[in-house]
Computed example of a mutant assay.
Amino acid sequence: MFNQMRTDYEVQCPVQKYQTHIFSTDPLMIYIEDYLSYEETRYLLHLADPLFIQSPVSKGYRLNEYDLSIRSSKSAVLPNDPIVACIEKRTMDFQGYQSVNRLEDLQVVKYGISDQFRPHFDWFGGMENPRVSTIFAYLECDDCVGGSTQFPHYRGAFPANWCKFINCEDNEDNRAAGGVGFKPIRGNAVFWRNLYENGTGHPGVWHAGMPVHQGRKFGLNIFTRMQNAYVGDDTSSSVEDSSA
């Protein structure tokens, strides 16, 4: 099945019919239904399976640090591949048909029981080539409890229709972090813009991967840089210093 899928995608990227919903304009946050097909989520999990290593964090400019009290997930950087290439093209078409050269390598992340990524930014001050935007897509969390993508600083109101995508009930994630939490629904994704127009970081995109209480969660990190992305540069997420 996967061999034929690779062949098909190499010939032509399929049209993925997704729906977008603007959740916030400041910061810009867009929820995307069906960003990935079911077959794509299965394929990415298959591709990532032998590649997982401990997820790093960065503290200031110290890259590839490891601190399980901050981030306890596993990560897999995906290799060049026809399906990956089509998802990269979809991502940059979504953002105004920009060059795929601005993308970092796509990363699958795996969260088991109690795994989490405490509140952090995907940017930090002084990055020479900052991440202008993030897409976090959900690959699998069919039987899991917890694991929402939480934005603790969000204080706005939203219609009840959003409750199919957002934790509206008084649950552990909302009590622990506050703000708003997006449910990990397979194939769906959350897009947010990390920077203001002047290039400075937006404090409203402070976010966390909340602990998984049951099952496993798999997600896909997609980071877009201001300029072409380069291998080996400042690619890890930053953790806000407690003195900031």
Results as ranks from 00 to 15, higher is better:
residue 1 M to T: 10
residue 7 T to R: 09
residue 11 V to M: 07
residue 12 Q to T: 14
residue 15 V to E: 10
residue 22 I to R: 15
residue 25 T to W: 10
residue 26 D to W: 05
residue 41 T to R: 00
residue 45 L to E: 12
residue 45 L to T: 07
residue 61 Y to M: 07
residue 74 K to W: 14
residue 74 K to L: 15
residue 75 S to M: 07
residue 76 A to M: 11
residue 78 L to P: 05
residue 80 N to Q: 15
residue 81 D to N: 12
residue 83 I to V: 15
residue 85 A to K: 13
residue 87 I to A: 03
residue 87 I to P: 01
residue 90 R to A: 06
residue 93 D to L: 13
residue 99 S to Q: 09
residue 102 R to A: 06
residue 104 E to F: 13
residue 112 G to Q: 09
residue 115 D to M: 09
residue 119 P to M: 12
residue 124 F to A: 09
residue 130 P to S: 07
residue 140 E to H: 10
residue 142 D to S: 14
residue 142 D to A: 12
residue 148 S to Y: 12
residue 150 Q to E: 09
residue 152 P to K: 00
residue 160 A to D: 14
residue 165 F to Q: 00
residue 178 G to Q: 02
residue 180 V to W: 01
residue 182 F to D: 00
residue 185 I to Q: 01
residue 191 F to L: 02
residue 192 W to G: 00
residue 194 N to S: 14
residue 194 N to P: 06
residue 196 Y to H: 15
residue 199 G to M: 10
residue 204 G to P: 08
residue 205 V to L: 10
residue 206 W to L: 14
residue 207 H to W: 09
residue 209 G to T: 03
residue 209 G to Y: 02
residue 217 K to N: 01
residue 219 G to H: 04
residue 223 F to P: 04
residue 224 T to D: 02
residue 225 R to G: 04
residue 228 N to A: 10
residue 228 N to P: 06
residue 229 A to K: 10
residue 231 V to L: 14
residue 237 S to D: 12
